[in-house]
């Protein structure tokens, strides 16, 4: 990993980073780390983290693709969840300070790394895969272009967890409320013309908590790094649940 930025104009940026190593720390604390960032070009928050890690190699965070595809580096950047790899410093910095915390609502494993088990447990409940009952066709299950289009804005989710961990209902009932990410995936398969388990999927969402704990706060829409709209997906499922009641 190279942490050298070949530029001549540098300025100091103070990063304020959440630190917690349960094997040595009694409780979490915030650490200031000063780094030199270029003034003549924008870098991403992840680049700044790499620079901070050079100063303090014990700093821990997840990252992989560094281009907003893998969803590894979701974190709370100056109070708002986002992906560090696609968040430019120019957008993130407030008053020449950058405060980084782990995504809220999930247990911290270390520093900016959270335990996402609860998040993936909820995703598992919505069975995020095609369920078919009819006999397999010879080649493939075909879709019209219009049917395929209805999945736009749904299949792009990278499961970074930014939305669910920004949702107060998920903080309060993480074991009962599925959260925006899982519900977006649920709608992705309910809306899929090839899926044949719509009724079963809706039955699973009929209780008071799984879906109906969404209060329309819309933090999920505000923070989604892919620009998706889980609130709309939740609303679509709710409409489907209500309309089948009347039929």
């Amino acid at each position: 990993m190279s942490a050298v930025i070949p530029v001549s104009h540098l300025q100091t940026l103070r990063m304020n980073i959440y630190r917690f190593n349960p094997s040595i720390d009694d409780k979490p604390y915030m650490q200031d780390i000063d780094i030199e960032v270029p003034t003549d070009k924008d870098i991403m928050v992840l680049d700044a983290l790499h620079l901070a890690k050079v100063k303090d190699p014990s700093l821990s965070y997840r990252s992989s693709c560094r281009e907003g595809v893998c969803g590894s580096d979701g974190m709370n950047i100056n109070g708002k969840n986002g992906l560090a790899c696609i968040m430019p410093l120019s957008e993130a910095i407030k008053r020449n300070k950058l405060t980084l915390r782990p995504m809220p609502g999930l247990p911290v494993i270390r520093d900016l790394i959270v335990d996402m088990k609860t998040f993936f447990d909820q995703l598992e409940k919505v069975q995020p895969y095609l369920i078919t009952k009819s006999k397999n066709p010879e080649k493939e299950r075909v879709q019209s272009p219009q049917e395929r289009e209805s999945l736009d804005g749904l299949y792009e989710c990278i499961l970074c967890g930014c939305c669910s961990t920004a949702c107060p209902s998920f903080w309060w009932n993480p074991d009962k409320f599925l959260g925006p990410a899982a519900l977006l995936q649920s709608w992705r398969f309910i809306a899929d013309s090839r899926d044949e388990a719509t009724e079963e999927r809706l039955d699973d969402l009929e209780d008071s908590f799984s879906l109906y704990r969404c209060h329309g706060v819309m933090n999920c829409v505000s923070v989604c790094p892919k620009g998706l709209n889980p609130t709309e997906a939740i609303s679509n499922i709710r409409n489907k649940l209500i309309s089948r009641k009347g039929s």
Partner: peptide
């Protein structure tokens, strides 16, 4: 009364 849809409506 355990139906979220009923409560919602």
């Amino acid at each position: 009364l355990e139906s979220g849809t009923n409560e919602f409506l």
